[in-house]
């Protein structure tokens, strides 16, 4: 009874869903990100924080398959129990397919994630068609359900995103991403550019969805309050490198690195 078990033994048979190994990307002489390694487990929400220019968006672009790293690997378990795939070893077409089906990417600017000239219902339904769904009635039903879930009235299903407010566009983008039931979601400053009251609503929605769906997610944010509310673990980046990593509340309440101490003391209250 008193045996001390290795903390890792508690993980049982579970494996990481994503594993970054020494991911590096350079812009000429300049470091985008360098030597970033971590494992992400199913159901875990990882935050990447740091100031603008710290390399967090570069890292996210590599992890999510948008940009190829100059060195290192991004390994992904596409379905539970499947072998790890090095996503940059895949042919371009397979990687794109993976990005549309097993992953979701929520962009900071909803215009980058939505088709502005397609109806709200079409934006959501398109992801199901990518997956091979062809039954119009079922697609429309699923789209309606997801619009309601992100608090957009079903009556607006035929409106185009440009008729929506910024907060609604962002919620629509989230519905478009989550409808295909991804295993892993990437979010780049999901509340950036929104009014504070709109942010609060979106944050609460994200918090509930992430918990209810048991999603694994990687969220890039410069807002430590957002990180505290949504993430389990944090990576703190400076000049392209990870300077500190750990449990979110521990990193924010007892930061060890000089840069993290500076970040956490620069905000009024998180």
């Amino acid at each position: 009874m008193n045996a001390l078990v290795s903390p890792n033994a508690l993980q049982g048979t579970l494996r990481p869903i994503l594993s970054a190994r020494s991911v590096s990307r350079y812009y000429g002489e300049r470091i985008g990100c360098a030597g970033v390694s971590f494992d992400l487990w199913p159901g875990e929400v990882l935050g990447i924080v740091g100031e603008s220019g710290s390399g967090k968006s570069t890292l996210l672009r590599c992890l999510s398959g948008i940009d190829r790293p100059d060195a290192g690997e991004v390994l992904f378990e596409a379905t539970p129990g499947a072998d790890f795939l090095d996503i940059f070893d895949l042919p371009e077409q397979d990687r794109r397919h993976l990005m549309r089906t097993a992953w979701g990417i929520v962009h900071q600017n909803p215009r980058d994630g939505l088709r502005m000239d397609v109806s709200a219902g079409g934006n959501v339904g398109e992801r199901l068609m990518d997956r091979g769904d062809r039954h119009y009635g079922r697609i429309r039903e699923a789209a309606t359900e997801w619009l309601t879930r992100v608090e957009i009235e079903a009556a607006r299903i035929d409106d185009r995103p440009r008729q929506f407010s910024g907060g609604m566009q962002q919620r629509l983008q989230i519905a478009r991403v989550l409808v295909s039931n991804p295993r892993l979601v990437f979010m780049d400053e999901p509340t950036g550019g929104l009014d504070v009251s709109v942010q609060a609503r979106l944050l609460d929605l994200l918090r509930v969805l992430v918990r209810d769906l048991g999603l694994a997610a990687i969220i890039v944010t410069h807002d430590l309050a957002v990180a505290r509310l949504l993430t389990d673990r944090l990576i703190v980046m400076k000049d392209g490198r990870v300077v500190e990593a750990g449990l979110t509340d521990q990193v924010l309440d007892d930061p060890q690195h000089a840069y993290t101490q500076l970040l956490t003391s620069a905000v009024l209250a998180v």
């Binding site: 903390p7 508690l10 487990w41 389990d232 449990l247």
Partner: peptide, 22 residues
Amino acid sequence: IEIRHDGAMVDIASALPRTILE
């Protein structure tokens, strides 16, 4: 800092974040 969890002692000082959360 050992805490009894599921009948075994877990060292909070060295446990992985996900273990601490559990």
